[in-house]
Design a protein around this nucleic acid. Sequence first.
DNA 1: CTACCGATCCCCT
DNA 2: GGGGATCGGTAGA
Length: 263
Amino acid sequence: LTLAAHHAGDPPSRRRPTSPVLLEPLTPADLGGPVFDVARRLLGALIVRQDDEGLRIARIVETEAYGGPEDRASHARAGRTARTSVMFGPPGRAYVYLVYGRHHCLNVVCGVDGEAAAVLIRAALPVAGVERMRRARGLATDGDATLVTPGDHRLAAGPARLCQALGIDRSLDGLDLLADERLRLAMPAALHGVEPGDHPGPRAERDEPAPRPEMRDHLAPGETVLSGPRVGVSYAGPEWAGRPWRFGIADDPSLSRPFPAVA
DNA sequence: CTACCGATCCCCT
DNA sequence: GGGGATCGGTAGA
């Protein structure tokens, strides 16, 4: 899967030289293992949105892990219901829910089919289709200079802002993020210098355990990961609200909010 | 059937 | 720094 990042929807004056971005789809193996590991692993991965408006791409910089019925902060705490059934389904599905009657949030279902687990995508950095995202957020157009516009890095700095910027709502609930053309997850292959189809060969003879491709992270050199308590789940009680299941790329300008200082 | 409340954001003071 | 919007899910009567 190769896509060229472009600004076709932008006015000519905004058009810049473009560089190709190599994208490789994620696989079910990328979503296996403990849900908090998956949440950390998804940092740096790309969300690719394709609809009538065109192409929009954002890089994930903040996530939260949510478990099954035992996790008192998870929507799955009430067991399998009509709303949460997607969370109990196969990995790679989108769980999109409405919160506070007006905002949508996007989750990536993970783990194994039959057990509830999902990663909430809390923030991302716009990579392509930035003008479309600004319009989707209702922030400004080039023709209207009276509106104050935030920096592009704040366009998807929050779970509901992210959904608004990418045009994600309940109509996309349940779709397959590993295969659907409208909304899919990808890793930036070019960032790793790995061409699509260029897989590591057998390394069984070596002493060092081979880095498993599904365990690779998508972070750039020098980037580090912060963790902290999940946001807005105090109702779950100290046991579960206190777990450091929120993850983010340290010092990233697109974080929804700072991570608490280590005690 | 009714009541309560939320995995948020934005505008007001 | 504080509160309102807004509506569907969930639980309890």
